[in-house]
Write a protein that binds this DNA or RNA. Structure first.
Lengths: 349, 349
DNA sequence: TGAACTTATGAAAATATTTTCTTATTGATT
DNA sequence: AATCAATAAGAAAATATTTTCATAAGTTCA
């Protein structure tokens, strides 16, 4: 694995690009002399453009991390196409590690994760820290931190606020999605979800928040639990719901807690002869499914999956560098974006 | 304001400390040669001990920030001792800026903050970014980001997930505090709060969460609104409550959403002839009040106020450096700690 | 058992960066 | 108009850091 021989950029290259002397660049970078705003901007822009700032930044932190243990529970393994979520996250993480020259030692398979297994694997690899994805059980976290190992959770949260974590801003994102439905005129909305971990219930919280924030009667917020997050389960849940209620009733929109569920729901709705979005609107969450390719294209919430891994790495670096157990644990929530396509319309009047 | 002439540490000093050659240190730091785990550790430890790693880290980021506008709404001004919260945060922030040589231009007083005022002030100071404390109104955020200025919120949150922010982990912390009360045996708990911003309602969420997580009847969760967060208002609210209900009734513990309220509550309870914690337990939140000096000493939740400013600065730096509007907004929650003192005991049986 | 490798470390050469000091320009003050 | 002070930028000297290459010590294998 050899990088293209992109020769390192230095302060010299920046000075040429910005048309100033080498020393001037140094002065700008260190604030060791008065510099006019104009030149300062020119230099900084050049430095950024050439990737000098980024390189410098990388070099400063890279030091701390040599080997990182990546613990992946079986159900996050991207064995089936279903778990595109984890796959995307892990993929971006792997690439970032390669880029930075961090050795990533995976621990996966071989039955359920236990603190013992993780600690042993970390010792064996003499890892500087641990990244743990999709698993935030208390016993696990206790076991690991008792061994004095530094850990960052990806797509999880430590309720005891001892361990750093990165997760999507589920609650706000779900509220934003529901807000959008409400703004289109929907008042009776079904939230299709499943009994997942706390990070999934946050989406339900946000769904409810939106009703409160918009002063809409909470009686319009309906919740339906599917058996899991696979498309088939969403399909079954919606089919059963349609049957029980003899059609969608007052409900004019379905907000699904995952794109996969939304795909299943759309199948069930179409099978029941309902038009999307004419008769009923559907909204997803995650932005991983090929929502663009189904018909109608799925309106959804885009989660910045590609940024979760790198951010986790960054938290781990800072933790290793600081090496200060007094420092408060950090929980990082990444903002999500609405992706508006065709599966949502105003309700029939 | 002159730093003690602590001469800069370099790779040379590290090599001496770690008893290796200069080049070896360089190799460790850059991964440019195979290094034994033993030497690697020795070098890294030495580098950390001497503050070399920290210095390097600082240097890498300092570049991006020269001038920062600090916008402080009137009600966060530390004019009265009441707002020890803001005072502590601002104090730590100021010191961090001094340490790093960042120029901090305050914008405060002169009536309510408006987007226009902030944008103009930022332009005038040619600020690289804005720190906004205790104010996250939508119009304000829209106005600022429309002007293309980078902003980080301190003790606030952007529901639209466009702007980075730092805040305490209010929800989990409140749950932790309530958990503690429940673990001592309390089942009927009063949450004393006020109509604050969303960050305050998060504490109420956590209070409720604890009942759910512990499978305790939610009928035991009582909420009482004070007129504000000053001690006097807590005192009045509790006095009125005691009067209305002819004593505390079944309630055996009061969890206050702020230390100031707790101090007031304690005064009202004592005035009513109740013993703390014999008759009723009291728990605070914030860890700023002189809870250690009151009698009995106040059990509370310690919020890492000193870290909020520096973390906000760090977010701003990264944002300026990346200069990538595609990058998702980040919301950083800092973990809090339980401080156990004397004001909480098991309820009378 | 000794040639061929591999792993570790350091000395010295090659680079990169910072600091000091000089010079130019502008505007204010006598 | 001459002088001074403040602001900007750069040349050159002083340092700091990285890289290349040499060497030692162990390992493997025919």
């Amino acid at each position: 694995m050899r990088m293209p021989p992109r020769k390192k950029v230095g302060i010299k290259d920046v000075s040429r690009e910005a048309q100033v002397a080498i020393s001037t660049v140094s002065h700008v970078l260190n604030g060791t002399a008065p510099i006019s705003a104009e030149v300062r901007t020119r230099v900084l822009d050049a430095a950024r453009r050439l990737g000098y700032l980024a390189e410098r930044q990388t070099k400063a932190t890279i030091t701390a991390l040599h080997t990182v243990l990546l613990a992946v529970p079986d159900d996050a393994l991207p064995e089936n196409e279903i778990n595109l979520f984890s796959w995307t996250v892990l993929n971006a993480l792997t690439r970032e590690c390669e880029r930075r020259g961090v050795r990533l030692v995976p621990l996966a398979g071989g039955g359920p994760l236990t603190a013992k297994r993780i600690v042993e694997a970390a010792m064996e690899a003499s890892a500087d820290g641990i990244l743990l994805i999709n698993d935030d059980r208390r016993e696990l976290l206790h076991g690991i931190s008792n061994a004095g190992l530094l850990t960052v959770l990806i797509n999880g949260e430590d309720q005891e606020m001892k361990v750093d974590s990165v997760a999507p801003g589920n609650r706000f994102a779900a509220q934003m999605a529901t807000d959008w439905l409400i703004s289109r005129g929907h008042r009776e909305i079904l939230h299709l979800t499943w009994e997942g971990r706390t990070t999934i219930t946050r989406r339900q919280d946000g769904f409810i928040d939106a009703f409160r924030a918009n002063n809409i009667p909470r009686s319009g917020a309906h919740v339906l639990q599917a058996a899991g997050y696979e498309p088939k389960m969403g399909e079954d849940a919606i089919a059963a719901w349609l049957k029980d209620n003899d059609g969608p009733g007052d409900v004019t929109a379905i907000f699904c807690a995952a794109d996969n569920l939304a795909l299943g729901a759309m199948r069930a709705l179409t099978a029941a002869g309902l038009d999307i979005p004419g008769d009923i609107s559907v909204m997803g969450f995650d932005g991983v499914a090929l929502g663009e390719l189904v018909s109608p294209a799925l309106t959804t919430v885009d989660v910045p999956l590609n940024q979760m891994g790198p951010e986790a790495l960054h938290l781990l670096e800072r933790r290793v560098l600081a090496n200060d157990s007094e420092r408060a644990a950090q929980r990082l929530e990444l903002g999500c974006k609405l992706v508006i396509r065709q599966s949502v319309a105003a309700p029939r009047t």
